[in-house]
Simulated scan of single mutants.
Amino acid sequence: MNEENLTPAGELITAAYELGVAHPPGYPLFTLLAKLVIGLFPFGSIAYRVNLLCGLLGAAAASLLYYTVFRLSGSYAAGILAAGVFSFSRLTWQWSISAEVFSLNNLFVGLLMALTVRFEEAATAKERSKISKVGAFCCGLSLCNQHTIVLYVLCIVLWVLFQLFKGKELSFGHLLKLGLCFLAGLLPYLYLPASSYLNQARWTWGDQTTFQGFLTHFLREEYGTFSLAKSEAGSSMREMLLSQVTHMKTELSFTVPALAIVAWLRTAMQAKQEKSSMIWLFTGMLCIYSLFFAWRANLDITKPLFMGVVSFVLY
C-alpha cells in the first residue's frame, strides 16, 4: 500500500494492527505498545484503542511533570499548576486524544526529568548507581520513539556523568554497565528488520532486512537525518524563534509564561545548591532544544502545511 494514502495517525494504527513498519525512524516502541493495547482492550474500534493508549500516556506524562515540579519546589500547588497547564494546553490535549507518538515522547521527557530528580535526591552511592542504570535504559528506550528527545538525553547524560565523576563514583565498570543498559533500551529496534523479514503486513514502509536499509530508516535519510525534510528551503532561524514566541503567546497568553518565569526565579534563588543545578539543567535543555530546532527545521513556516509540521515536532 502507498504510504502517501495514509495520514500519520492512520499509518501508525495500521502499522500497529498489522505489525508493519511506520515511517522513519519506524517508531518500534509505539508500534509494539499499540499492538499490545489492541490485543488487551476488548472494547471499541482499533483506532479507539490506540487513541485511548495515547490518552493514558499523556496522563502519565502530566503525573511525572507534577512529581518533578513538586520535588523541585516543595509545593503541591506548583506541581498541580504545572501539570494542569500542561494537560489542558491545546497541543497536549490534541495529541493525547489521537494516535500519534507525541504523548509517548512527553512521557519519556517527564520520566527522564523525574529520574534526574531522584538521582540527585539519592542518599547513597548504591542508590545513585541503580537510578543511573535505570535512567540509561530509559534513555535508550526513549530513542525508540521520537528522535528529537536525543537533545534532552545528551544534556541529562552529560550532567549525570559529571555528578558521578565529581563524587568519584564513575569507574570504568560502572560506565560499561551504563552503556549496556543504554543499548538494552534500544532493543525494540530489532522489531524493524524482524517485521520486514516476515513481510506479513499488507502495509509497511521500506525494507529493513539489510543493514543499509535499516540505517536508512533509522537515520531518517529519506527526510534528512538532521532536518525535517530533504531539499527544502526553509525559514530562517530568527523566523523560527519568533514563531516559537508567538506560538507560546497564542497558546498560553502572557500569564502562563510570566508565572513560569516568576516560579523559575523563586525556585532557583531559594533552592538548595543541588536542586539549583537541576533547575539550570532543565532550563538549558529547553533552550538547547529550541535553538537547535530553530536551526534545523528547514521548512517554510509561511505555508500552513509546513507550519503544522513544525508545531507537531516542536511540541
Rank of each mutant, 00 (worst) to 15 (best):
A268D: 07
T31K: 01
L286H: 10
P304G: 09
T302F: 10
F214T: 01
T31E: 05
A258H: 09
V313G: 06
L115E: 12
M269Q: 10
T116V: 02
W159N: 00
M269V: 08
A258Q: 03
N106W: 15
V85N: 08
A15T: 12
F102M: 13
T267H: 04
K168A: 12
C287Y: 07
K230E: 12
T116W: 00
I288N: 04
L164I: 02
L72H: 05
I261T: 10
F108H: 05
M1D: 12
W205N: 11
V256I: 14
A60L: 13
Y27I: 02
R202K: 13
L53W: 07
I288C: 15
R71Q: 13
L299T: 10
L178R: 13
L29C: 02
P25M: 05
R128Q: 11
L57C: 02
Q146I: 05
G173W: 09
M1P: 08
P257Q: 06
I13D: 01
L81Y: 13
T7L: 12
L65W: 01
A83M: 07
S45C: 07
V160T: 13
P24V: 08
L170K: 05
R71G: 00
R266A: 15
G135A: 14
V117A: 14
G140F: 03
S103G: 09
L32Q: 11
F137P: 01
L281R: 04
G110V: 00
V245I: 14
F162T: 09
F137C: 04
N106T: 00
S227A: 13
G308T: 10
E121W: 01
R220S: 10
L259K: 01
A77Q: 12
N51V: 01
A123C: 01
L186G: 03
R202L: 09
P28F: 04
P188G: 04
S96M: 05
L143I: 03
S129T: 09
I156G: 02
F312D: 08
K177N: 11
L186Y: 02
F211N: 02
F282K: 02
A9W: 07
A122Y: 07
L187S: 10
S227E: 05
G167V: 08
P188F: 00
T302M: 08
E18F: 08
P28D: 07
E127K: 15
C138I: 09
R71S: 10
A16V: 04
D207K: 01
M285D: 02
R49H: 02
M285A: 12
V21I: 15
S236K: 01
T7D: 13
G55L: 09
F43K: 11
V310G: 00
L104P: 04
I97H: 15
G74I: 05
F102Q: 15
V37I: 15
G234V: 04
S96C: 12
L40Y: 06
A258F: 12
S45A: 08
F254I: 11
A62E: 08
A258E: 06
A184D: 03
L198I: 13
Y76K: 14
L104E: 06
I38K: 02
Q244C: 06
L161P: 01
N2A: 12
F102E: 14
L112N: 05
S236T: 14
I97F: 14
S45R: 10
S311T: 13
I97P: 00
E100F: 15
G140V: 03
A268Y: 09
A83K: 07
E4G: 04
T255V: 15
T216K: 15
L72W: 03
P28Q: 10
K166D: 09
